[in-house]
Protein backbone atom coordinates (compact mmCIF):
# COMPACT_ATOMS: atom_id res chain seq x y z
CA UNK A 1 0.00 0.00 0.00
CA UNK A 2 2.79 2.42 0.96
CA UNK A 3 6.22 2.17 -0.65
CA UNK A 4 9.08 4.40 0.36
CA UNK A 5 11.91 3.97 -2.10
CA UNK A 6 15.44 5.13 -1.36
CA UNK A 7 14.14 8.23 0.40
CA UNK A 8 16.78 10.75 1.39
CA UNK A 9 16.59 14.25 2.72
CA UNK A 10 19.14 16.94 3.45
CA UNK A 11 18.32 20.15 5.28
CA UNK A 12 20.25 23.13 3.98
CA UNK A 13 23.30 23.10 1.73
CA UNK A 14 27.05 23.45 2.00
CA UNK A 15 29.04 22.79 5.16
CA UNK A 16 26.01 23.39 7.38
CA UNK A 17 23.89 20.80 5.58
CA UNK A 18 22.25 18.19 7.76
CA UNK A 19 21.68 14.77 6.22
CA UNK A 20 18.56 13.58 8.00
CA UNK A 21 17.64 10.61 5.84
CA UNK A 22 20.23 8.61 3.97
CA UNK A 23 18.22 6.31 1.76
CA UNK A 24 15.22 4.66 3.40
CA UNK A 25 13.36 1.75 1.89
CA UNK A 26 10.14 0.95 3.65
CA UNK A 27 7.06 -0.96 2.65
CA UNK A 28 3.80 -1.05 4.55
CA UNK A 29 1.22 -3.60 3.48
CA UNK A 30 -2.51 -3.00 3.46
CA UNK A 31 -3.93 -3.30 6.97
CA UNK A 32 -0.52 -3.49 8.60
CA UNK A 33 0.57 -1.52 11.67
CA UNK A 34 4.24 -0.68 11.38
CA UNK A 35 6.17 1.07 14.13
CA UNK A 36 9.27 3.05 13.30
CA UNK A 37 11.70 3.46 16.19
CA UNK A 38 15.02 5.19 16.32
CA UNK A 39 17.20 7.28 18.55
CA UNK A 40 16.31 10.93 19.07
CA UNK A 41 17.24 13.09 16.12
CA UNK A 42 17.30 10.07 13.83
CA UNK A 43 15.04 11.71 11.28
CA UNK A 44 11.87 9.87 12.24
CA UNK A 45 9.80 13.01 11.95
CA UNK A 46 11.48 13.91 8.67
CA UNK A 47 10.38 10.54 7.34
CA UNK A 48 6.80 11.11 8.47
CA UNK A 49 6.67 14.67 7.17
CA UNK A 50 7.95 13.45 3.80
CA UNK A 51 5.24 10.81 3.57
CA UNK A 52 2.59 13.32 4.63
CA UNK A 53 3.76 15.73 1.96
CA UNK A 54 4.66 18.37 4.52
CA UNK A 55 8.18 18.57 3.14
CA UNK A 56 9.64 17.68 -0.22
CA UNK A 57 12.40 15.11 0.21
CA UNK A 58 15.61 15.79 -1.68
CA UNK A 59 15.78 12.26 -3.06
CA UNK A 60 13.77 9.10 -3.52
CA UNK A 61 10.16 8.25 -4.11
CA UNK A 62 6.96 7.77 -2.18
CA UNK A 63 4.34 5.53 -3.73
CA UNK A 64 0.84 4.89 -2.49
CA UNK A 65 -0.90 1.94 -4.14
CA UNK A 66 1.84 1.86 -6.78
CA UNK A 67 1.31 5.47 -7.83
CA UNK A 68 4.00 7.99 -7.10
CA UNK A 69 2.77 10.91 -5.01
CA UNK A 70 4.16 14.40 -4.77
CA UNK A 71 2.62 16.39 -1.97
CA UNK A 72 -0.01 15.10 0.41
CA UNK A 73 -1.65 11.79 -0.53
CA UNK A 74 -5.42 12.04 -0.73
CA UNK A 75 -6.38 9.41 1.79
CA UNK A 76 -4.11 10.29 4.63
CA UNK A 77 -4.62 11.37 8.19
CA UNK A 78 -2.01 12.36 10.76
CA UNK A 79 -2.02 12.40 14.55
CA UNK A 80 0.71 14.64 15.89
CA UNK A 81 2.45 14.52 19.24
CA UNK A 82 1.56 18.01 20.36
CA UNK A 83 -2.15 17.61 21.01
CA UNK A 84 -2.44 21.04 22.62
CA UNK A 85 -1.61 22.70 19.30
CA UNK A 86 -3.06 20.23 16.85
CA UNK A 87 -6.70 21.17 17.48
CA UNK A 88 -8.15 24.57 16.61
CA UNK A 89 -8.99 26.26 19.94
CA UNK A 90 -11.61 28.53 18.37
CA UNK A 91 -13.98 25.78 17.25
CA UNK A 92 -15.69 23.08 19.28
CA UNK A 93 -14.43 19.53 19.53
CA UNK A 94 -17.21 18.39 17.21
CA UNK A 95 -16.27 20.98 14.59
CA UNK A 96 -12.61 20.07 14.87
CA UNK A 97 -13.51 16.50 13.96
CA UNK A 98 -16.05 17.47 11.31
CA UNK A 99 -14.00 20.16 9.58
CA UNK A 100 -11.99 17.85 7.26
CA UNK A 101 -15.11 15.97 6.22
CA UNK A 102 -16.39 18.78 4.07
CA UNK A 103 -14.07 17.79 1.26
CA UNK A 104 -15.50 14.31 1.50
CA UNK A 105 -18.74 15.62 0.07
CA UNK A 106 -20.87 15.09 3.13
CA UNK A 107 -23.66 17.45 4.06
CA UNK A 108 -23.74 19.15 7.41
CA UNK A 109 -25.93 16.59 9.16
CA UNK A 110 -23.82 13.70 7.88
CA UNK A 111 -20.62 15.45 8.98
CA UNK A 112 -22.02 16.02 12.41
CA UNK A 113 -23.17 12.41 12.69
CA UNK A 114 -19.77 11.11 11.55
CA UNK A 115 -18.03 13.33 14.09
CA UNK A 116 -20.32 12.15 16.89
CA UNK A 117 -19.71 8.52 15.93
CA UNK A 118 -15.93 8.97 15.88
CA UNK A 119 -16.00 10.77 19.22
CA UNK A 120 -18.08 7.97 20.72
CA UNK A 121 -15.55 5.48 19.42
CA UNK A 122 -12.73 7.16 21.33
CA UNK A 123 -14.88 7.36 24.47
CA UNK A 124 -15.81 11.01 24.19
CA UNK A 125 -19.49 10.88 23.33
CA UNK A 126 -21.10 14.04 24.55
CA UNK A 127 -17.95 16.14 24.27
CA UNK A 128 -18.79 17.49 20.80
CA UNK A 129 -20.00 20.83 22.12
CA UNK A 130 -16.96 21.45 24.30
CA UNK A 131 -13.89 23.41 23.34
CA UNK A 132 -10.49 21.69 23.18
CA UNK A 133 -9.11 23.70 26.08
CA UNK A 134 -11.87 22.38 28.30
CA UNK A 135 -10.42 18.86 27.96
CA UNK A 136 -7.39 17.21 29.52
CA UNK A 137 -4.33 16.40 27.43
CA UNK A 138 -5.26 12.76 27.01
CA UNK A 139 -8.77 13.71 25.96
CA UNK A 140 -7.44 16.22 23.45
CA UNK A 141 -5.32 13.48 21.92
CA UNK A 142 -8.43 11.29 21.75
CA UNK A 143 -10.11 14.08 19.80
CA UNK A 144 -7.17 14.16 17.41
CA UNK A 145 -7.55 10.40 16.96
CA UNK A 146 -11.30 10.81 16.43
CA UNK A 147 -10.62 13.43 13.76
CA UNK A 148 -8.37 10.95 11.97
CA UNK A 149 -10.94 8.16 12.33
CA UNK A 150 -13.85 10.20 11.03
CA UNK A 151 -11.75 11.02 7.99
CA UNK A 152 -11.61 7.25 7.20
CA UNK A 153 -8.07 7.42 5.83
CA UNK A 154 -6.48 4.60 3.89
CA UNK A 155 -3.26 5.41 5.72
CA UNK A 156 -2.91 6.79 9.22
CA UNK A 157 0.37 8.36 10.27
CA UNK A 158 1.09 8.89 13.94
CA UNK A 159 4.05 10.98 15.06
CA UNK A 160 4.95 10.09 18.66
CA UNK A 161 1.26 10.31 19.46
CA UNK A 162 1.61 9.44 23.14
CA UNK A 163 4.88 11.21 23.87
CA UNK A 164 3.30 13.97 25.92
CA UNK A 165 0.74 12.17 28.05
CA UNK A 166 1.07 10.46 31.42
CA UNK A 167 1.73 6.71 31.70
CA UNK A 168 -1.81 5.62 32.47
CA UNK A 169 -3.31 7.70 29.66
CA UNK A 170 -0.63 6.39 27.38
CA UNK A 171 -1.65 2.76 27.97
CA UNK A 172 -5.30 3.64 27.43
CA UNK A 173 -4.51 5.40 24.17
CA UNK A 174 -2.31 2.54 22.96
CA UNK A 175 -5.18 0.12 23.46
CA UNK A 176 -7.54 2.57 21.80
CA UNK A 177 -5.33 2.63 18.70
CA UNK A 178 -5.26 -1.18 18.59
CA UNK A 179 -9.03 -1.33 18.95
CA UNK A 180 -9.95 1.18 16.26
CA UNK A 181 -7.33 -0.18 13.93
CA UNK A 182 -8.83 -3.68 14.27
CA UNK A 183 -12.28 -2.28 13.78
CA UNK A 184 -11.46 -0.31 10.63
CA UNK A 185 -8.64 -2.46 9.26
CA UNK A 186 -6.60 0.69 8.78
CA UNK A 187 -3.03 0.81 7.61
CA UNK A 188 -1.00 2.58 10.29
CA UNK A 189 2.54 3.90 10.38
CA UNK A 190 3.44 4.93 13.91
CA UNK A 191 6.60 6.70 14.88
CA UNK A 192 7.91 6.45 18.41
CA UNK A 193 11.11 6.55 20.38
CA UNK A 194 9.68 4.12 22.91
CA UNK A 195 10.90 0.58 22.27
CA UNK A 196 8.26 -1.13 24.44
CA UNK A 197 5.52 0.76 22.73
CA UNK A 198 6.76 -0.19 19.27
CA UNK A 199 6.74 -3.90 20.15
CA UNK A 200 3.42 -3.70 21.96
CA UNK A 201 1.61 -1.98 19.11
CA UNK A 202 3.35 -3.11 15.95
CA UNK A 203 2.86 -5.96 13.54
CA UNK A 204 6.34 -5.08 12.51
CA UNK A 205 9.01 -2.83 13.98
CA UNK A 206 11.41 -0.95 11.77
CA UNK A 207 14.50 0.50 13.43
CA UNK A 208 16.31 3.54 12.07
CA UNK A 209 19.97 4.34 12.60
CA UNK A 210 21.26 7.71 13.71
CA UNK A 211 21.20 10.49 11.12
CA UNK A 212 21.65 10.20 8.22
CA UNK A 213 19.06 7.54 8.93
CA UNK A 214 18.94 4.23 7.17
CA UNK A 215 17.11 1.08 8.17
CA UNK A 216 19.08 -0.61 10.93
CA UNK A 217 16.84 -3.62 10.83
CA UNK A 218 13.29 -4.78 11.15
CA UNK A 219 11.49 -7.37 13.21
CA UNK A 220 8.21 -9.12 12.76
CA UNK A 221 6.17 -9.07 15.95
CA UNK A 222 4.18 -12.23 16.38
CA UNK A 223 2.63 -11.76 19.74
CA UNK A 224 -0.75 -13.25 20.58
CA UNK A 225 -3.74 -11.07 19.82
CA UNK A 226 -5.54 -9.26 21.37
CA UNK A 227 -2.71 -7.61 23.18
CA UNK A 228 -2.96 -6.86 26.83
CA UNK A 229 -1.00 -4.29 28.78
CA UNK A 230 -0.04 -6.79 31.49
CA UNK A 231 -0.01 -10.19 29.83
CA UNK A 232 1.60 -9.16 26.56
CA UNK A 233 4.36 -7.26 28.28
CA UNK A 234 5.37 -10.28 30.39
CA UNK A 235 5.21 -12.69 27.45
CA UNK A 236 8.69 -14.16 26.81
CA UNK A 237 8.46 -13.26 23.12
CA UNK A 238 7.78 -9.62 24.07
CA UNK A 239 10.78 -9.52 26.36
CA UNK A 240 12.93 -11.05 23.66
CA UNK A 241 11.70 -8.73 20.92
CA UNK A 242 12.17 -5.62 22.94
CA UNK A 243 15.73 -6.67 23.70
CA UNK A 244 16.33 -7.17 19.99
CA UNK A 245 14.85 -3.80 19.11
CA UNK A 246 16.86 -2.22 21.90
CA UNK A 247 20.08 -3.61 20.48
CA UNK A 248 19.21 -2.34 17.02
CA UNK A 249 18.41 1.13 18.36
CA UNK A 250 21.70 1.27 20.23
CA UNK A 251 23.47 0.23 17.07
CA UNK A 252 25.30 -2.59 18.81
CA UNK A 253 26.32 -4.28 15.60
CA UNK A 254 26.23 -3.70 11.89
CA UNK A 255 25.53 -7.41 11.36
CA UNK A 256 22.37 -7.50 13.43
CA UNK A 257 19.67 -10.00 12.54
CA UNK A 258 18.58 -7.66 9.80
CA UNK A 259 15.73 -8.24 7.43
CA UNK A 260 14.25 -11.55 8.56
Amino acid sequence: MLDVVNLSHTYGTGPKAHHALGGIDLRVAEGELVCVVGPSGAGKSTLLRSIAGLLTPTGGQIRVNDTEVAGTPGDLAVVFQDYSRSLFPWVTVGDNVALPLRRRGKDKAARRAAAAEALAEVGLSGAAGKYPWELSGGMQQRVAIARALAYRPALLLMDEPFGSVDAQTREDLEDLVLKVRDHHRMTVLLITHDIDESVYLGDRVVVLTKAPATIAGELKVDLPSPRDQIATREHPAFVHLRAEVGRLVRGRDEHAPARP
Binding site: G53, T72, V91, P100, R102
Partner: peptide
Protein backbone atom coordinates in the same frame (compact mmCIF):
# COMPACT_ATOMS: atom_id res chain seq x y z
CA UNK B 1 1.03 22.68 13.32
CA UNK B 2 -2.26 24.31 12.38
CA UNK B 3 -1.14 24.85 8.80
CA UNK B 4 0.17 21.26 8.71
CA UNK B 5 -3.25 20.03 9.81
CA UNK B 6 -4.93 22.18 7.17
CA UNK B 7 -2.69 20.67 4.50
CA UNK B 8 -2.89 17.04 5.60
CA UNK B 9 -6.67 17.11 5.93
CA UNK B 10 -6.97 19.09 2.73
CA UNK B 11 -9.04 21.92 4.08
CA UNK B 12 -10.55 24.01 1.33
CA UNK B 13 -9.43 27.56 0.63
CA UNK B 14 -12.56 28.93 2.26
CA UNK B 15 -12.01 26.76 5.33
CA UNK B 16 -8.39 27.86 5.60
CA UNK B 17 -9.51 31.47 5.42
CA UNK B 18 -12.54 31.39 7.71
CA UNK B 19 -11.67 28.52 10.04
CA UNK B 20 -7.92 28.98 10.36
Amino acid sequence: LHTDIAQVFRLSRAQRLFRL
